[in-house]
């Protein structure tokens, strides 16, 4: 009798594992880690853009010293944008993401002004270094758009997962899971990365 009783937990364990597996015990953390990894991509791409800026500012300075207001504006916006970092644990806090988005949006706007000013300097526009930097900047803006879209998709997946049956049970009981925030571009023209026309 006692032997039979001691077997019961051993028999229950796989059943419980199966039942809990259906409650999102694994899929919820998986989806959350996926979204966090996608957010790291977003931040990496923004960092990549920030890393290009000092070189760009110096190159433009060589041809267009008189545009100091625009140049200073870019440098300041860059300093402000790089000072705001959003860690993976802050992704459920809408205000942190908004601050980050606003700072990056201001940097996008400052960069836009800088690039429109360069139109007046034909020598600069044909400078090999400037052309290289410009294409890197375009590519990075495009990668930012992609990274942001991938992040938002993964957040949507996670949020759907924790809100739908039966995973919603596991989400409440085991993880107290809260929805993550999507990340929207705040600059007016941040969506449209420049393309090449022929």
């Amino acid at each position: 009798m006692s032997r039979r009783l001691s077997l019961a937990p051993a028999l229950l364990a796989p059943v419980a594992a199966l039942a809990l597996g259906g409650c999102g015990l694994n899929s919820i953390p998986t989806a959350e880690e996926n979204a966090k990894a996608k957010w790291a991509d977003v931040q990496n791409e923004y960092q990549r853009r920030a890393d290009l800026i000092p070189n760009l500012v110096n190159t433009v300075k060589g041809y267009a010293k008189q545009e100091s207001t625009v140049l200073v504006g870019v440098t300041e916006a860059r300093a402000k944008a790089t000072s705001i970092q959003v860690s993976a644990d802050d992704l459920k806090d809408p205000s942190k993401l908004q601050q980050f988005g606003q700072a990056q949006g201001q940097l996008s706007a400052a960069l836009g002004r800088l690039l429109s000013v360069t139109e007046n300097y034909p020598d600069l526009k044909s400078n090999a270094n400037f052309l290289a930097l410009q294409s890197q900047l375009e590519g990075t803006e495009n990668r930012i758009t992609i990274a942001r879209r991938d992040y938002n998709a993964s957040v949507q997946q996670y949020n759907t997962l924790i809100r739908t049956f039966p995973n919603s049970i596991g989400a409440k009981v085991f993880y107290g899971a809260k929805p993550m925030q999507t990340f929207q571009a705040t600059a007016p023209n941040a969506q449209s990365a420049p393309t090449v026309n022929f």
């Binding site: 052309l131 290289a132 410009q134 294409s135 890197q136 590519g139 090449v196």
Partner: peptide, 9 residues
């Protein structure tokens, strides 16, 4: 990116 831009341009 610069290399691709150069090829296109």
């Amino acid at each position: 990116d610069p290399r691709c831009a150069e090829i296109i341009r």
